[in-house]
Design a protein around this nucleic acid. Sequence first.
DNA 1: GATGAATGAGCTTTCATTCAT
DNA 2: CATGAATGAAAGCTCATTCAT
Lengths: 191, 191, 191, 191
Amino acid sequence: MRIAKTRAIFNAAVDVFSVRGFEKATMDEIAAKAKVAKGTIYYHFKSKEDLFVFLVDEGTKLLGESVLSKLPDQASATEQLRVIIREQLAFFQEYRDFCIIILREAWGEDTRQREFRRMLVHYVRSIQTIVENGIANGEFVTSDPETSAWSIFGGISIRAIHHIFTGSGENLTSFSPAMEQLIISGLSRSG
Amino acid sequence: MRIAKTRAIFNAAVDVFSVRGFEKATMDEIAAKAKVAKGTIYYHFKSKEDLFVFLVDEGTKLLGESVLSKLPDQASATEQLRVIIREQLAFFQEYRDFCIIILREAWGEDTRQREFRRMLVHYVRSIQTIVENGIANGEFVTSDPETSAWSIFGGISIRAIHHIFTGSGENLTSFSPAMEQLIISGLSRSG
Amino acid sequence: MRIAKTRAIFNAAVDVFSVRGFEKATMDEIAAKAKVAKGTIYYHFKSKEDLFVFLVDEGTKLLGESVLSKLPDQASATEQLRVIIREQLAFFQEYRDFCIIILREAWGEDTRQREFRRMLVHYVRSIQTIVENGIANGEFVTSDPETSAWSIFGGISIRAIHHIFTGSGENLTSFSPAMEQLIISGLSRSG
Amino acid sequence: MRIAKTRAIFNAAVDVFSVRGFEKATMDEIAAKAKVAKGTIYYHFKSKEDLFVFLVDEGTKLLGESVLSKLPDQASATEQLRVIIREQLAFFQEYRDFCIIILREAWGEDTRQREFRRMLVHYVRSIQTIVENGIANGEFVTSDPETSAWSIFGGISIRAIHHIFTGSGENLTSFSPAMEQLIISGLSRSG
DNA sequence: GATGAATGAGCTTTCATTCAT
DNA sequence: CATGAATGAAAGCTCATTCAT
């Protein structure tokens, strides 16, 4: 029972936070959506902030696991990067709420925002590592792997969120080929 | 006098909105920072939302002007794209507050957020046009110019905001070469 | 206008705090009694605690002034002590609320309670000084002026509060002769 | 087992109520300190109020027994009063928590507070009886034995609580001689 | 034009009490 | 006997907005 309620609150919170944003989200709405009394949320989480941080931790961990578990061990850096692009888009397709929450709530000096960025940095470092491996084995060329990694992460994320708010029902993964090409080969015809 | 007060309010608002976010920003803090009475803000702006939208309109217009006015008319699409990257980074360097506001406040279904995205779409369409011109004249190859344009915009923005919150004092424009290379030539050695 | 509202809030707060006690008093009830909106209280006082401390400071100052201003400068210590007893009873007669608040709210480790005791100590020290003067000029005999002063203050206060809650409508000052006799001459017939 | 748990709850309650006061004390803290589940308290006591009243009844009874059992039957009223003063101080020395609870929680119109005063009145009446006996046999002089009794009780209690919150570690009974002298002989040299 | 005192709806959080196990 | 998860009413506090001056 305990886990069931915690789960219900978690799901409701993801929903409400993504629609309203952290500040405008109310515990009342989360409680209603989770079909528990407001006090029940406070029995399981010590505050709104605590609930949010829990959700962000889980969500970012899930992003990491979802994407990184798909990486083929023996493949080239190029292939690995393609997988990253494809799987991050797939993750945002399945968890649109997290895509919104990430872009909206990570930037600021509040505790929850710092914690959020700490998780994000961890994820982006995985991309950076792949880029660095690619450089090491001669596949890639770049003067600044950190900039590359954040640009790749940001490109995918902003492309996704723009689609979420503006696009048709099209699946996010349909952008994968164009993005892979852009990131691997660049725009230039000669490459 | 009118313009002076409006200006003071505007500047204070940019500051407070970027530090606190729209919801946590208070009219009291904006008034205090602008050194006007709270009622004075309501004399110049109809509401908190109205003030925010004004600021976003001005800011996005300024972004567009700052970046696009630097575009050399007769240059190649490649060169134009390089200028976009360089100048958008320069803009974010000068107006860090606005970089933060864009990434934080543009995503949601509130009126102010829709208006915000409308302005953003306008700007990104300029990038898209350059990409399309590049395709038309054979410089560029991509199957999806819209995805390219948003990826470019997103890559630059997220790289910038990560630096703003985490980086050292380094100038944002120092990332320009690496980003130009990534976007023009891609990561791949063979290109 | 400002002072009028502050005054109304002050009076309402004294009333509500004395009837309910600090913890059970609600800002809603104070606001209703003062006929102002709840927010108005927070415009004038930064918190419930702040309001309470303000009220305690004023009340204890008033107690000090009311009682001590009646002290005849050139009189004997005995006469001065009689005045203290009479006037403190008169003060509690007029400000029963303060009598209740003092006995109820001064004991504890919260900030407001420490502050309260600080004020009380100041007042009781005046009694102690009179006792010490009496010793110096040979009127009084006691081995411990501090104990005497607190016993006198406590005797008066508890006798008063017992009357407030249990007694008839009789005026508190009617206890003055018996108390003066007790404190000056003691119970013993031989004295 | 039943009695053991009831005892543990009782002790924890005395502790928590004296530190926090009735309103701020929480059943959670009492349960934690008693090392029982919260529900267990409700098995033994019907409500928070019920627990408090039980504790007050026991405590006041204990005060009465502790002090009055020491009264030497055949002694003079003067000697009996000296014993009262000494033993009440000794009681407060051993049960400081209860001294605090008395002064804090007895004044108000709630049921528990009326019940509390009913117990207190019972105790103070014992002092009053001694005073009246003293008058009857010519030892004492006073026009108002009730006022004397409450003043004596109040003087002792307030002197004690002031010491508890402000004093050094000194034993409360060290104030007994000065208080006995004050109450028996008064401050006046001539007596 | 400009002010700032006043408002009250709305929010987060607490906690005594209940009850299924 | 004992437990502790769940409840929801109630409270302190915030803040965008208004309006008399």
